[in-house]
């Protein structure tokens, strides 16, 4: 375990939870603006999980999921991903493509493109909120998308951070429109060296 991880005590977790709330709040507002749908959002759970327990984030490792990933650069390098279970990804496509609920049955090129852009918007809003609050520069690189076994996606995300054994902030997010909730998970993985920067920026000494 790295020094940065050990420094993550309860106070830090609380502060990061606040950061996460603000970030996801902005993300959902931007989605509402885009779709013209009055989304509400709740964060039923928030956790700091070590990357080797990443699997617990999803029910089954072999379940199909869709994830949009964006590397974060600038003052606090890291990785952000938004992961949706397959059925929720399909519902999100229904919504974005103005389809009947349940019409999207497969995630092909069109659907992946829609999900990539939606993920891009959500993640960018999330990062902007954090950057504004912490007064950091957090530009992101273009997004990538994967539709595959959830375990394979999570393991691939875990491997992008060179210091495995480090922790990710996982933010369970429930987007609710009038019909059915769309659940997704925000994963925010700061690089080990970035965590102290983030903590300092939000007023906590790392």
């Amino acid at each position: 375990m790295s020094v940065a991880t050990k420094a993550l005590d309860e106070l830090h977790v609380d502060a990061l939870r606040e950061v996460a709330n603000i970030g996801t709040g902005h993300a959902v507002t931007s989605l509402s603006t885009l779709t013209g749908q009055p989304f509400t959002m709740s964060v039923p759970s928030f956790g700091v999980v070590s990357l080797d327990q990443f699997a617990d984030v999803v029910g089954s490792l072999e379940e199909v999921a869709a994830a949009v990933y964006m590397p974060v650069e600038g003052d606090a390098c890291g990785h952000v991903a938004f992961l949706f279970p397959f059925d929720c990804a399909c519902r999100l496509c229904d919504l974005m493509l103005c389809r009947e609920l349940g019409e999207t049955k497969a995630l092909d090129e069109m659907e992946c493109s829609v999900l990539t852009e939606t993920g891009n918007i959500l993640i960018s809003a999330f990062l902007n909120a954090i950057a504004d609050m912490a007064d950091l520069r957090l530009p992101s690189a273009p997004p990538g998308i994967a539709v595959d076994m959830a375990g394979a996606i999570l393991a691939s995300l875990a491997a992008v951070s060179p210091a495995l054994g480090d922790h990710a902030l996982t933010i369970m997010t429930r987007l609710v429109d009038r019909e059915q909730p769309i659940e997704g998970v925000f994963l925010f993985i700061p690089e080990p060296a970035s965590l102290p920067t983030l903590l300092r920026a939000i007023g906590l000494d790392a």
Binding site: A141, P142, A146, A152, I153, A159, V160
Partner: peptide, 15 residues
């Protein structure tokens, strides 16, 4: 495998 597909850029995440 390389799960994540990036538009026109496959050099990243080549772990």
């Amino acid at each position: 495998a390389q799960l994540f597909q990036f538009g026109g850029n496959v050099a990243r995440l080549d772990i």
